[in-house]
Structure formats: C-alpha cells, structure tokens
C-alpha cells in the first residue's frame, strides 16, 4: 500500500519536476516565463502528433523510433514556444508577465486545436486518442522491477522519463552551482548590467536558458500523456500541472535538487485523497489546494527569514537595456 502511494506520488510528481527544472533554468536567467503551462501543453501535443502519425504510418512499431519521434517532436514544439517567448521579451522587450500568460493561453489553444483535429481523424466515439502501443514502450520498466518486492516498486518500476527527469534536475543543479556557465547564468539573472560589464552576453544566456528550460518543461507534458495517462490524449486533460510546476519553483527556492523532493511531495498531496476511504468530491478539491498552501507557507517562511540566497533572482521579470541606466 505505502509502496503504491509512493509510486503514484512519483509518477504524479514527474511532470512537475520537468516543469519546475525548466522554469528554474529560465528564471535564473532573469526571465519569468509564465508560459510554462502552455509550453508543457505544446510539448505534449507535439509528441502526440508525432507518435500518432508514426503509428498510422507503420503496422509494427520500431521501439526506438516509437520513442525517438515523439521525443524529438515534443522538444521541437516546446523549444519553439521558448523561442517565441525570448523573441518577444528579450529582443522586443515586451512585458514578461503578459507574454508568458499569452503563451499559456496560446499553447493550450494550439494543443486543443491539434488534439481535436487528431481526434476527428480517428473518428471514434470517445473524445480522445489512444496511443497505447507507444505508451507501452514509454512505460517499459527496468528489468527485475517486479521481482524485488517493495524496493522494485518504489525505485525501479517507472518508465525511463522519470529517471530522465531526476537526472536532468541533478545536472541542472550541478551546472548552476559548480560550473562557470552556471555562474554566468546566475549573474545574468541577478544583475544583467554587472554581467554585461564583465563581458557576458546577456541576450545569449537568456535565449539559451529559456529555450533549454522550455524544452525540459515540454518533456513534462510528453511524460504526462505517454506514461502517466497511458498514451491517451484528451483535450484539457493536463489540468493545472503547469501552474503547480511554477509553484514548485518557488517551493524549492530555485534549487532543482530540492525540486526533486518537492515534486514527490506535491505528487503525494495530489494522490493522497484517492487513498482516503469515503472521500467526498468537495473534500477532494480541498486536498487539491494543499500544494499551493504549502507553497504559500514556504513563501511566508523564506520572506520572514529574509536570507538573500533563498530569494528569487534579483532581476527576475525585468527587461535589460544596456543604454537605459
């Protein structure tokens, strides 16, 4: 029972972990990308579209291509979203909040439009597409997972994207903390004029961090459809996971390593109502609020402690013009 709950929590948390790792990288460059929900949505539908077309084209799936095609499609889709965001906010210096929110609306619209179109193509009774063959490949467990009892359930029973999420978070954490690239990226987010004076290209770092961050976040969407939802796409099925990812960024105080545990905690809070017997719908909704409540608590505690390292990057949300001082 406990093993199952943890298993579900990790699976629930993985999209959030992808989303928050991506958003942390983005925010460290000083870009507050509120388009993450839309970007994750686009990441999901791009993967679905790629996979759908591949499944339609062949009779037997090549396992490598069945993973590779949706993966590449998803990365391209979400990176493009990141590029749009960068072009608008960095090059054209549009307001970051407005651009981000617009991208969220846009991304969900794009997702629902192409999702709806694909559903029309297959001509089914239910308003969804099922890519169960691809999903099975995405969900392939590690060997021995079912032979090692609870240990296997908790640690080995997941599809490969779960491990990718954790590895990406660990790498991001290492890059931010220990490498010169990370140092320069943080400098850009903290004080772009200082970085500029030190000869660091602010524009380049913002573009790279935001696009890579978007690509990572998009994988969260892909994981959700292909693994968590068993390859079933239905419009608006993604829920509020995008916003939870942004909440998770604040919860983890801009540290991808903390984000790993945060995502499992958020996932746990998300799934716990289903394990409480006789729960009413209204109580369940109350439980769904818990991740946000926890985030608000973290915000309150960090601002009371007022430790500079736990604050958002100082130049977050501010456009940078060299000439305007």
């Amino acid at each position: 029972m406990i093993a199952t709950i943890i298993q579900r929590a990790v699976m629930q948390g993985t999209p959030l972990l992808f989303g928050s790792t991506g958003e942390i990288l983005t925010e460290k460059s000083g870009n507050l990308n509120l388009g993450i929900p839309g970007i994750m949505y686009v990441g999901a539908i791009s993967g679905v579209a790629g996979s759908f077309l591949y499944e339609q084209a062949v009779t037997t799936l090549n396992p490598f291509l069945a993973v590779f095609i949706p993966l590449i499609c998803s990365l391209i889709g979400s990176t493009l979203m990141g590029l749009i965001y960068c072009f608008l906010t960095v090059t054209l210096r549009a307001n970051q909040n407005v651009t981000g929110l617009a991208l969220t609306t846009f991304g969900i619209g794009v997702g629902n439009f192409f999702g709806g179109s694909l559903i029309k193509l297959v001509d089914t009774d239910v308003p969804s597409i099922s890519l169960s063959a691809t999903s099975t490949i995405f969900k392939t467990q590690l060997p021995f997972a079912d032979k090692l009892g609870w240990f296997g359930d908790i640690f080995l029973s997941y599809g490969f994207l779960v491990y990718v999420a954790i590895i990406v978070a660990l790498i991001s954490s290492h890059v931010l903390k220990k490498t010169r690239t990370g140092l320069h990226l943080r400098a850009v987010g903290e004080s772009p004029e200082t970085a500029d004076a030190a000869g660091i290209s602010v524009t380049k770092h913002k573009y790279l961090a935001t696009c890579i961050g978007s690509a990572i976040a998009g994988l969260g969407g892909l994981y959700y459809v292909m693994d968590y939802a068993n390859g079933v796409w239905s419009n608006n099925g993604f829920g509020d996971r995008g916003w939870l990812s942004i909440a998770l960024v604040i919860f983890s105080m801009w540290r991808p390593s903390i984000s790993i545990f945060g995502s499992i905690l958020f996932g746990f809070l998300y799934v716990i109502p289903t394990y409480i017997p006789d729960i009413t719908v209204s109580t369940k909704k109350l439980f769904e609020m818990l991740p946000y409540v926890v985030t608000i608590l973290v915000l309150v505690i960090t601002s009371i402690r007022d430790k500079k390292e736990n604050q958002p990057p100082a130049a977050l949300g501010l456009p940078y013009f060299r000439e305007e001082r």
């Binding site: 943080r186 400098a187 903290e190 004080s191 200082t194 970085a195 030190a198 000869g199």
Partner: peptide
C-alpha cells in the same frame, strides 16, 4: 560598483572570465 549581491567576493572576481 558593479557586483552581484548574492555572489561571494571570489565569484564576482572571476565573473566573465574564460577558463
């Protein structure tokens, strides 16, 4: 001064250099 507040002195000093 052009310094990043949350960085240590050493981090500020090496900022922008190539290794």
């Amino acid at each position: 001064f052009k310094l990043v507040d949350v960085f240590s002195a050493a981090e500020n000093i090496v900022l922008g250099l190539e290794d």
